[in-house]
Design a protein around this nucleic acid. Sequence first.
DNA 1: ACTTAATGTCAAGTTTATTTTACATTAAGT
DNA 2: ACTTAATGTAAAATAAACTTGACATTAAGT
Lengths: 68, 68
Amino acid sequence: MGNRLKVERAIKDLTQAQLADLIGVSRQTINAIEKGKYVPSTVLALKMAKVFGKPVEEFFFLEDEDLD
Amino acid sequence: MGNRLKVERAIKDLTQAQLADLIGVSRQTINAIEKGKYVPSTVLALKMAKVFGKPVEEFFFLEDEDLD
DNA sequence: ACTTAATGTCAAGTTTATTTTACATTAAGT
DNA sequence: ACTTAATGTAAAATAAACTTGACATTAAGT
């Protein structure tokens, strides 16, 4: 799965730590997700959508490797 | 997190087993998600969005208990 | 009442997300 | 060059997602 977290954070002028705080996870979790190290839960994705003010699909998207 | 999976399945006329097959998980996983037993990964949510032809937010949504 | 498809559920096991702590690296400002 | 904020990364521990297999319950049709 690909993501545009860095860009969305930049738009809202948020550090990884600030975003982590806003959605209630650790800073390392945000970093790992942003780096594509693992896939967040849907609750996390929805919380981010709330913070960024746009739908999940605009910053998380399926890639070839995700297709069955 | 709440969901409208049962309704979306009905619209597409899909059984839990068929949906499971389409997105590459077990039938029990679909059942558990539908029953709110656990929260799926964002990849799963995006795959469902693809099957249902609508954004994630239309069938998964935050509830009071999800708010920090 | 019988059959069958669909759904619900449970237990045990594996994999993956997430936390905490801690330290290294990068970027920016002064 | 120095300081500080931000980011990257890693190891160990815990929690949660997901699988498989198996069985119980519900719904619908005949």
